[in-house]
């Protein structure tokens, strides 16, 4: 605990130092800048945006940045209605949402900002399950599954009752898990303990020897003393979720990119443009500070060039409006 606090303090110190160096270099540029930047959307992305906005306030104190947490879907609704400049999203835009934007004549630029690794966790006392394949996860979570004990998943495991814990079905986290495990048409079984608050899931699995659950890696990183993460078989090897394996893409298929979507028209406003540039330059550091994983520098560079060339539209939907699957580095150009 003290160790973690130390690192936090060191981080704080470094941030203050960088901020100081940063402001002294370009203070003349932005300290008098005025304007507003309105952001809404995913509560998963919120901590990163909050951190960036907080730092940005040091650099451009007169710019009024506001951030909401309507959820990814709610954010896109306000985004397509032209009420906000930037939409936080914990998944790529859907075909239906893109259609609404197109009909409203609204163009946007897609900006991945960080990775979140969906972590599968079990109780600390669970000494039998160290790694899972996607097939085993399907056996546990798919609708119609009859697995009631751990033995039903692997015959060498004990006959301990299998208790499933899941985030709320409205969350982007659940959406992502469902897409990986159940695909486009399948569904997840409904006899699980569900909570909108991931801390409830942490407590649930921590207090239930036969429990298994999943949520964003930030909740696991904060609770490594209470929970045990399970390695996931990515097709070639068992991989544990940590910042290296998530950043490299090895932790598949459960690492997901987080995005901000920027209204192209709003980007013409100096305040929004400078904020977005600032966001991209600091997204990696801020994401790590709040418990997410930075993207490879290569992807941030692609983002910078996409903003320079005003490349609009999503790269996660093909011409027929079908979702494009694959790792971020392969899909996002």
């Amino acid at each position: 605990m003290t160790n973690i606090k130390m690192t936090n303090k060191q981080l704080l110190l470094t941030t203050i130092l960088t901020a100081f160096v940063g402001t002294s270099a370009i203070a003349n540029d932005n300290s008098k800048l005025r304007g507003s930047v309105k952001i809404d959307g995913s509560s998963t992305v919120y901590p990163i945006t909050e951190a960036v906005a907080e730092e940005f306030a040091e650099e451009a104190p007169r710019v009024r940045v506001t951030v909401g947490i309507s959820g990814t879907g709610g954010g896109f609704k306000r985004f397509s209605a032209g009420e906000i400049d930037i939409s936080d999203a914990s998944r790529p835009i859907k075909a239906t949402e893109e259609k609404v934007c197109t009909e409203a004549g609204l163009e946007f630029i897609e900006v991945p900002v960080a990775y979140d690794g969906l972590t599968i966790v079990v109780n600390k006392e669970n000494d039998w399950c160290n790694a899972l394949t996607v097939d085993q996860i399907k056996k546990m979570f798919l609708d119609g599954s009859t697995a009631k004990t751990w033995q039903d998943i692997d015959s060498s495991w004990p006959a301990m009752p299998l208790k499933l814990y899941s985030p709320g079905t409205d969350s982007g986290t659940f959406d992502y898990f469902k897409e990986v495990v159940a695909g486009k048409t399948g569904s997840i079984r409904s006899d699980m303990s569900v909570s909108e608050d991931d801390n409830v899931l942490v407590r649930g699995v921590a207090g239930d020897k036969g429990g298994i659950g999943f949520f964003g890696c930030a909740y696991f990183f904060e609770n490594t003393d209470k929970l045990k993460a399970v390695a996931v078989h990515n097709g070639t090897a068992n991989v544990m979720p940590n910042s290296e394996s998530i950043e490299s893409g090895e932790y598949a298929p459960f690492s997901r990119p987080l995005f901000i979507y920027v209204n192209k028209e709003a980007l013409a406003k100096p305040a929004v443009k400078i904020f977005v540039d600032y966001y991209i330059d600091n997204a990696g550091d801020m994401a790590e500070e709040v418990g997410y994983v930075r993207l490879p520098e290569d992807i941030y560079n692609r983002v910078r060039s996409n903003i320079a060339t005003m490349k609009t539209g999503t790269q996660f939907l093909d011409d027929e409006g079908e979702k494009v699957h694959g790792a971020l580095a392969a899909v996002y150009k």
């Binding site: 909050e50 907080e54 306030a57 951030v67 909401g68 009420e83």
Partner: peptide, 9 residues
């Protein structure tokens, strides 16, 4: 639902 924000300085 009406769009109250969270981060405001």
């Amino acid at each position: 639902v009406i769009g109250g924000f969270l981060f405001i300085r």
